[in-house]
């Protein structure tokens, strides 16, 4: 029973982290119409940068602040160099992001090697929760994710730039005609997407292994959240991420997690086939 609670809680924590990353994926897909195969690797870069900053400065909190900023910068550079030039070959964008993924993975492997690294949680200790001793850091991770997600929605709905983003998402041609700087929006969207994945990486680094392959597993999960939650339905993406991760966590306590993974993928197929708007109401497209 304790195992179930622990795994369930872990599922929720991870679900929130994934939600953060998946939101980044969703805005890239929604606004730029790009299937970003490299998104998991953006997360991975976040974990690696977190470890690197910590390794150099000994301060996790510095990483917490720096890494998303670096992520934003990297995202902007990539958008400018890679994404913008291929706007005409949209179908091939998935190929370009595949190439990007290869570069990122191999680049990290070249810089830091094959051996995974461990980053110790900056907050130690456990707390009694639902009858089990639960790591405080994981609660922090959940809280940080929630705050970041809330901040993202706030940005999207309360700021001028966020409103522009939503306008471009809804109708890019009209948005341009209205004088909204769509080129800049695309750049910032991609950069924000990277930053969010990187932030997810920083938050997750102490509770996962830091190595060049960390993104491979995250990617399908993010896509599942985006699709099942519904493209364009950001709230649905968050809900789907948490729900799927929670259910998978529970199942892990008594069965092979692969079975849970397969079940989620089957659900995703069903959604694609019959309800491409996702299973939550309130989706846009």
């Amino acid at each position: 029973m304790e195992l179930v609670i622990a795994l369930g809680l872990n599922g929720i924590v991870w679900g929130l982290i994934i939600a953060l990353i998946a939101l980044g994926l969703s805005i890239i897909f929604g606004l730029l119409d790009i299937i970003n195969i490299a998104h998991g690797d953006f997360f991975m870069v976040g974990t690696v940068l977190a470890w690197a900053v910590f390794d150099v400065t000994g301060n996790y909190w510095l990483a917490f602040i720096l890494v998303p900023v670096i992520g934003f910068g990297l995202g902007a550079v990539i958008e400018f160099l890679v994404i913008q030039p291929i706007k005409n070959a949209a179908a091939l964008s998935i190929v370009a992001t595949f190439g990007l993924s290869v570069i990122l993975q191999e680049g990290v492997r070249a810089t830091y090697g094959d051996v995974p690294n461990r980053l110790l949680p900056p907050i130690e200790g456990t707390i009694l929760l639902f009858g089990i001793e639960y790591e405080i850091y994981r609660l922090f991770a959940a809280a940080a994710s929630i705050i970041a997600i809330a901040g993202f929605f706030g940005f999207l709905h309360r700021t001028k730039f966020g409103t522009w983003m939503r306008a471009v998402r809804f109708d890019p041609e009209t948005a341009t005609a209205m004088g909204i700087p769509t080129r800049k929006i695309y750049l910032v969207t991609f950069a924000v997407g990277f930053a969010m994945a990187a932030l997810g990486g920083v938050v997750a680094a102490p509770i996962t292994t830091v190595d060049f392959q960390a993104g491979i597993d995250i990617l399908p999960f993010c896509f599942m959240a985006v699709i099942i939650g519904g493209l364009g339905n950001l709230g649905g993406t968050v809900a789907a991420a948490v729900l799927l991760s929670f259910i998978e966590g529970i199942i892990t306590s008594f069965a092979d997690p692969t079975a849970a993974r397969i079940a989620s993928l089957c659900l995703m197929s069903a959604v694609l086939m019959f309800r491409p708007h996702g299973i939550f109401a309130g989706s846009m497209r």
């Binding site: 370009a96 190439g99 990007l100 290869v102 680049g107 070249a110």
Partner: peptide, 11 residues
């Protein structure tokens, strides 16, 4: 780490 070059070629 030739894969990096491959990735560049792809892009």
């Amino acid at each position: 780490h030739y894969q990096i070059l491959v990735g560049v070629i792809i892009i």
